[in-house]
Design a binder for these strands. Structure first.
Lengths: 333, 333
DNA sequence: TTGTAGGCGTTATCAA
DNA sequence: TTGATAACGCCTACAA
């Protein structure tokens, strides 16, 4: 680190004490306009950038909020992260990221590291840690969880209702006359995937359609898994006229596999995805999917943690995903 | 910020001085095993996380590298950012992000803020600032530019040869017998777009194909712009048998527009994209595109800036994009 | 309105 | 091998 200029240097150049410099930098007390001008001039001349470390050490606030992500790269989580950045913009707080990699050990380390950097608050995007562990780890540190629902009221969570999302997607298909609807899910242990499956089952039950395990395939939220699942499904010989994929990427893979088997979408098979990824509107045909207000959630979470830092009580908030009807669903005739 | 435990607390609990605590935390000097054990026990008991501010203030190193991004959300830049994160993993350095928003004013502020946080080095992903301004701003602060080529040897740049990329993509089309090749570019002022166009022209020239401005459309790297461009092209009546899109998103939009006009890919029109986005392999048909080693570039840049921080001299590095042949290109018969 | 002095939690330099 | 003690750069009473 190159030796940077300090308020001391400025004080000397401007012919005042460093307290005065501090005062004009922070506008904390009125100072004589002339001296203030001299300070500002000196600061510009020396290209002064206050040392945040010293500032935080002295003031006790870091003006940062720690953001724990889990492997960026998924459109949904990326959009949340962008929402967080946008929500922090202009508030004086900077986000500082740490990766939890969907691993509770790594996640714990990341939180520790953020605490070491004295983050004033923590935002968890997804994650694996149990609520009780989280609480033990963070103590009184303001904390908001995004895209994940921790049951206890003690936790502030900004999340989407995946059961409802799965329900709405399936219901849409049912309303178009489909009864043999396949579901390509995520990993069995993933709560989002489980919830969407629960919603699927709920819609089936409500419509008096028998649930068949043969129509439920396990995927991993990747296009490749959607592609493979359709092959498996076709080979199984189980009849189906529609597919509900647990996310858009899975739907893309499924769509390609269908095409390779000479099945048309939506004439032969209807398809619904989940996430409303940017690319989905330009698929062939444009994909009907569930939209999640990811960016908005990120912003809401940023605002929430800021309020909490200011000592205000905040509560959890659920978002309901919305159906985006496009052209991948046809009425079963 | 809740009152956290300090080495002083640990010192008291372990019955040693804080210097000793510091020593066992940093393994800087051997200490009596028994005392060391006591310190470690005390630290665990109190859930100690060293205050990075105090640490940095005292040591003069922040153990962070500032990363300037420009609007996350594009697959290419996201992949670079992930590469940077991966490259820093386990090095003891944490990335701290700031958004430049493709705006030189914002970018300058971001760099200033990073300097205030005393980053030990800076990584610029893309950006608008001129090389001389950058140099003036950063001074001796180790700095590496990614995905952008600054002419002077003074700058260390990790970038891809977009001219070559545009050339290879176009050449691929030419080799399949195409001579009427449309190009859907990016904004006129965007250097990546300009370079890819230059490569396109170079390939045409080399094959003795006349360049027609009517076949060059302006886009903005979005699917919507690709979609619109094809409409414009079709309406213009200009003949073409192939399209080279400046990125994959643009190609998706173009593909949909073609489909809506009853044109088949690749039988009627061949299509090549740029970026090798994850979704491209699952388009219908799977999209032939130029692959850029974005993740690898991010990692390389992280390694480079670390070396520079250690005082080693480093030099720029060019990556050459590679053609990924899939099924969206057919031989012109 | 201004300056002085103490403290924030570490690291680093001395002696011991 | 240890323990004082002086930085590190800034903020903030407190006093002038």
């Amino acid at each position: 680190m190159a030796k940077a200029t300090t308020i001391q240097d400025i004080a000397k150049l401007a012919g005042v004490s460093k307290s005065t410099v501090s005062r004009v930098m922070n506008k904390t007390t009125a100072v004589h306009p002339e001296k203030a001008a001299a300070v500002i001039r000196a600061a510009e001349q020396l290209g002064f950038a206050p040392n945040q470390f010293a500032r935080s050490l002295a003031s006790g606030r870091s003006m940062t909020v720690g953001v724990i992500t889990q492997n960026l790269g998924s459109p949904f989580y990326d959009a949340i992260a962008q929402g967080v950045i946008a929500g922090l913009q202009g508030t004086g707080y900077s986000p500082i990221f740490a990766d939890g990699r969907w691993d509770h050990v790594v996640e714990e380390d990341s939180i520790r590291s953020l605490q070491g950097r004295r983050a004033d608050g923590i935002l968890l995007i997804g994650g694996q840690l149990r609520g009780t562990d989280l609480k033990a780890l963070c103590g009184t540190l303001p904390r908001v969880t995004i895209a994940r629902h921790l049951p206890s009221v003690q936790h502030c969570c900004i999340y989407v209702d995946n059961v409802q999302g799965g329900f709405l997607a399936t219901q849409h298909l049912i309303r178009h006359g489909h009864t043999k609807i396949a579901f390509i899910g995520g990993p069995h242990h993933h709560s989002d995937a489980k919830d969407r499956l629960a919603g699927y089952r709920k819609a089936l039950t409500q419509a008096n359609i028998r649930f068949t395990t043969k129509l439920v395939l396990e995927g991993n939220f990747s296009s490749a898994s959607g592609h493979a699942a359709v092959h498996t499904l076709l080979k199984s010989g189980e009849e189906f006229t529609a597919i509900f994929a647990a996310n858009d990427a899975t739907a893309y893979g499924a769509r390609l596999a269908l095409d390779q088997h000479g099945l048309r979408v939506p004439q032969d098979v209807s398809l619904v995805g989940y996430d409303n990824q940017a690319e989905s509107a330009f698929m062939i045909p444009p994909l009907t999917t569930m939209h999640q207000p990811a960016h908005q959630m990120g912003q809401a979470a940023a605002a929430a943690v800021l309020e909490k830092i200011q000592g205000q009580p905040i509560k959890s908030r659920v978002f309901i995903p919305e159906l985006r009807c496009r052209e991948s669903v046809a009425t079963r005739t």
